[in-house]
Structures are given as structure tokens and as C-alpha cells.
């Protein structure tokens, strides 16, 4: 039962993160939303891996790998956001997709 609670929390976190990603233009908040989606997925996986007799170690290892990868991606994304603000003062993406 507890596992279901965690899995549902994970699913809701994914939903919340997707909302944030689509609805919030500020780039730092989008990075936060990415992290919410990732950790929600990991929570779901962790709950699924804890269903058996013993807790499955493989999902735990996958999740640790995933957390580190998410940190790497967040760091690069944050760096890009800061560099963009430094060059042009923007904290959201300009609307047009094409460079001139």
C-alpha cells in the first residue's frame, strides 16, 4: 500500500514537472521542472523495484546513475542560462526560432 502511495506521488510529480516545463517560460524554472520529472520517474521505478520479497538493487543503481546524469545536465543548462543572461540580459527564450 505504501508503495502505491510512492508510485502515485512519482506519477504526480511527473505531471507537475510537465506542466512546469510547458507553462513556465523562465528558464531556471524549466530546469527545476526537468528535475521534478526525473525524480518523479525515479520514485516510480524505486517503488516498482521494492515490490518483490527483497528490495531490488538494480533500480537503485540505475537511479543513482540517473541522479548524477541529471545533475550534469542541470549544470550545463544553468550555465547556458547564466551565459545567455550575461550576453543579452534575457532570462526567457526569444520567440523566433531562426537566427537571421
Amino acid at each position: 500500500m505504501s508503495l502505491t502511495v510512492f508510485a502515485m506521488t512519482g506519477a504526480s510529480l511527473v505531471g507537475l514537472g510537465i506542466y512546469g516545463l510547458l507553462a513556465l517560460p523562465q528558464l531556471l524554472r524549466r530546469i527545476i521542472s526537468f528535475n521534478l520529472i526525473g525524480s518523479g520517474l525515479f520514485l516510480f521505478l524505486g517503488a516498482a523495484g521494492a515490490r518483490g520479497e527483497a528490495v531490488d538493487a538494480v533500480p537503485q543503481a540505475l537511479i543513482i546513475t540517473g541522479i548524477v546524469v541529471a545533475l550534469a545536465a542541470s549544470a550545463l543548462a544553468v550555465g547556458l542560462v547564466v551565459a545567455l543572461a550575461r550576453r543579452s540580459g534575457l532570462v526567457v527564450l526569444p520567440d523566433e526560432a531562426n537566427p537571421r
Partner: peptide, 27 residues
Amino acid sequence: LVAALRYMIFALAGSLLYLAGVVLVYA
């Protein structure tokens, strides 16, 4: 930088969608 950020957002979103499928497959 704008192009790289837009690329990053699509790439990350794509990775997470893919990861969601991987999670379901393992579960």
C-alpha cells in the same frame, strides 16, 4: 547560446520521455 538552450530543452525533454518508457519496461 539561444540555439544551444533550445536544443538542450528538446534534448532533455526527449531524454526524459525515453527514460519514462525505460522505467515502465523495467518495472
